[in-house]
Amino acid sequence: MELSVSIKKKLPHFDLDVSFSCRDSRLLALVGPSGAGKTTTIRILAGLDRPDEGRITYNNEVWVDTDKKIFLPPQDRHLGYVFQEYTLFPHLTVIGNVAFGTGDKKAAESLLRRFNIWHLRDRKPDKISGGERQRCAICQAMIRRPRLLLLDEPFSALDAVTRQNLRKEVRTLKQELSIPVIHVTHDISEALYLADDVLPMVGGRIVRKWMVQFMLKGRPSEQERVTEDIYALESDSRNSEELSVLYDSLEVIQ
């Protein structure tokens, strides 16, 4: 299973232009400051926004191809999406929210137990805490057995302790899943904690030089890979600025 993305979209302050792919059982983090285009990217992946140009494929299935005017609506992509803000349905109970997509109460019950919110099943979303709501949102996203899981800053509104606990739970969940997971965050440490691959984004683009720095700071074992990147960059003299940053980063680590 592989998600392959190559999209462009004109935004008010910059042009979004990103390409990446993510295989199953991998968690790819799009990390960067606010307004970098991360959420737009993930919304385009979900089918909630359309790119101006580009192509998104999941295995051999084309979700978006602007040349061929193909656009698969979100309801047919069969994915799970945990939104940045709480988007539970206020008129439904916790179990009603989790079972919303499928109506499968049994599956909802087992997910509620798995995420330790079984005791809240009959409460409305406004009667539970922020952490509990996000747990509920994760259950809601998981109940359809999605082919792709999208997490859009799911911990940003939580306090530090709850955030840390949920991170651990998502990390465990990721190890159990055999689907690609795309995680959007502005928190570098969160990205490094959860992700197999980190793609830093600034101004609508993936910034390679940042990626190397992140890797070096968080994963010294990645140095070999970084060195390969440097060799690749050295073969092209136009990358001098990027190279100088890389060299600096290596010096810091060594």
Binding site: L48, G80, R144
Partner: peptide, 26 residues
């Protein structure tokens, strides 16, 4: 909140179902 509708679409509902299951009850 429009995000409730978006959430419903992602969960597999058509715009018509989302109208009856999300818009009307709220």
């Amino acid at each position: 909140d429009r995000r409730l509708l978006e959430s419903a679409y992602v969960l597999g509902l058509s715009p018509m179902s989302a109208f009856f299951k999300v818009v009307i009850p709220n």
